[in-house]
Design a protein around this nucleic acid. Sequence first.
DNA 1: ATCATACATTTGTATATACAATTGTTGTAT
DNA 2: ATACAACAATTGTATATACAAATGTATGAT
Lengths: 158, 158
Amino acid sequence: MYIQLLYMKDITDIIKTKSHLPLAKRTVLNVSVTSINFKDGILSVLKPYDISIEQFNVLRILRGKNGEPSNLMDIQDRMISKMSNTTRLVDKLILKNLVERFVCENNRRKVDIYITDEGLKLLKLLDPIIEEKENELTNKLEKEELETLNLLLTKIRG
Amino acid sequence: MYIQLLYMKDITDIIKTKSHLPLAKRTVLNVSVTSINFKDGILSVLKPYDISIEQFNVLRILRGKNGEPSNLMDIQDRMISKMSNTTRLVDKLILKNLVERFVCENNRRKVDIYITDEGLKLLKLLDPIIEEKENELTNKLEKEELETLNLLLTKIRG
DNA sequence: ATCATACATTTGTATATACAATTGTTGTAT
DNA sequence: ATACAACAATTGTATATACAAATGTATGAT
């Protein structure tokens, strides 16, 4: 609660006292604050299930393979964040029995990573809760406005 | 270079293969990717000067006080990220002689934190480089579009 | 004046991020 | 066949993030 209050104050501060900032700087700041805002929201949903956002992302990537194994490069290619420490992410998922890892038979440099039934079950549980939170996080804008926002964000990245 | 390529592939992937995602989910993803994009850009500028984004932010907050001291709460209130580890951020700035810390005389629970001349000098050096990068990061959009983007981001946070 | 409470900072632990270096495996050139 | 380069994953180190707990100081109630 305290953190939440501080955080609100923070945003207010930025919006109010810094609206005279140069447009570019204001944009970078605004995107960052919104991103942190979203991340906090998703995190609050995952917290009771003792799983981090990154771990959740890895699980969803593995589910997307429909029973086929992934190796680390596959996973990293689909992650938003950088390539590194995916080994350690998988380690933690293994400890929770959400994932299994084997040496790849065709290429012993690679590893085959599978999501377990337990992992699939957790995802099934989380899916609707995450979706609800995502809707909540974006419901201040009309559908049309959201489309515009997505368009601008895509365009700004070039 | 490798990371850069991977990263581009990543974005392309998301935009191309995931444009059918629900609007809310797509928005959350798009904001996150853009935020990481911006962060990477700023980071690449700061890297040669051996200073992290968070350390840079603390320095700018201190400069904003124009010679008056800040305590940790002041700093945390103005940071985008959460309250914690600000002590350690300041520790690192002290090691670099960019900042000084004293026990507050009026209230010995607090600390007075000052930016040093060396800290001010570094900021003066970094200011134009950061600004240039911010312009570069946002130059794919027209001024008008950037204003719209900022408006939508402000509105989405409610 | 004492005690409980609130305040401000610090410390500890787990996880995540960023990058460099290392290990082990495979492919290729000679 | 051997040596070298490329590949895939792992490990190490420093920093940042998130939260809980501890420390020390000030304030208020009685």
